[in-house]
Simulated assay, not measured.
Amino acid sequence: MKEFFLKSIRIGFSIWSENDICDALELWGNPEVTKFITAEGTMSKEQVQQRLRNEIENYNNYNIQYWPIYLIETNENLGCCGLRPYDHENNILEMGIHLKEKYWGKGIAKEACFAVMEYAFRNLNANALFTGHNPKNSASAQLLKKLGFVYTHDEYYPPTKLYHPSYLMKKQNYMDVH
């Protein structure tokens, strides 16, 4: 049984460890998931292992990561959703989500992101959240609009070698609605 430090109605948030390599490979080893994450569209086993190490390092250094998320009812891994450092000086964190394809279109992304937004603003006292998406990923664009993020600019994202539409959610705007 996984331990969850954060829960929503259906989703439990855990913390990546080296023991989670199978979940990491199932997620980032799937070209349907990574087609919008990397320029190549795929990640090798070594790249997935490095990604897992990066998430663990982010947690060790900053107490945040793109946390692994699980269906509370079955303990099944859904993917990951969370935070990483973005603009330390202004206390702005970056939010992101990667879901296994069988969970697309079921409201999981919206539910997970709302839980992370709540956690970032209420527990971590972030001033704002930044996020972006691959310009070819229209589902992410729709999700960010539903979440209330405001488009600010296009930003170059080295892993995809593309300019990603980028958005911001200021703490005050979030608190006014929630």
Score class of each variant (00 low, 15 high):
Y119I: 04
L147S: 06
Y167W: 10
A24E: 09
N54T: 14
R122D: 14
E32T: 10
G41V: 02
E155N: 03
A112Y: 11
F13I: 05
G12L: 02
L27Y: 06
Y70I: 10
L143T: 00
C22L: 15
K136E: 15
L78C: 04
S8L: 01
W67A: 14
Q65Y: 12
N30S: 14
M169Q: 08
T42C: 13
Y70R: 05
K170G: 14
E76L: 04
E94K: 12
I15G: 09
P159K: 00
P68D: 08
K7S: 08
G107T: 00
F36H: 15
G96I: 06
V116Y: 13
M169K: 02
I21H: 08
N58S: 15
N127P: 01
K161G: 12
E55K: 03
D176W: 04
W28R: 00
H98W: 13
H153R: 09
E89P: 04
G105F: 08
K110E: 15
E89I: 05
C22F: 11
T74A: 10
A126K: 07
I21K: 09
I108P: 03
E55S: 13
K136M: 10
E32L: 12
Y86G: 03
L129Q: 01
N127T: 01
G79I: 06
E94M: 14
H178E: 14
S8T: 03
I21V: 04
P165N: 00
G29M: 14
E155P: 02
I69W: 15
G41H: 01
R53L: 01
L162F: 11
Q142H: 04
K171N: 10
L6Y: 11
E94P: 06
P135A: 13
D87T: 00
I37D: 12
H164N: 15
N134T: 02
S14N: 02
L27S: 07
I56F: 03
L168F: 08
G132E: 12
I69C: 12
L129N: 01
E155G: 09
S44F: 13
N127Q: 06
L78A: 00
M95L: 13
V33D: 06
K106P: 08
M175G: 11
Q65H: 05
Q49M: 03
Y163P: 03
L99N: 05
P165H: 02
E155R: 12
I56Q: 07
K102R: 11
N137I: 09
L52S: 03
K102I: 12
L168E: 09
I69T: 07
E111Q: 10
I108R: 03
E76R: 01
N63M: 10
K136V: 04
E46W: 09
M169P: 04
K136F: 15
F4H: 07
D23G: 09
L71M: 06
M175Y: 01
I64F: 05
C22A: 11
L129R: 01
N91L: 01
A39V: 13
E40R: 06
I72H: 02
L124Y: 11
K145C: 00
I69P: 11
C80K: 01
Q65N: 09
Y70P: 14
G29Q: 08
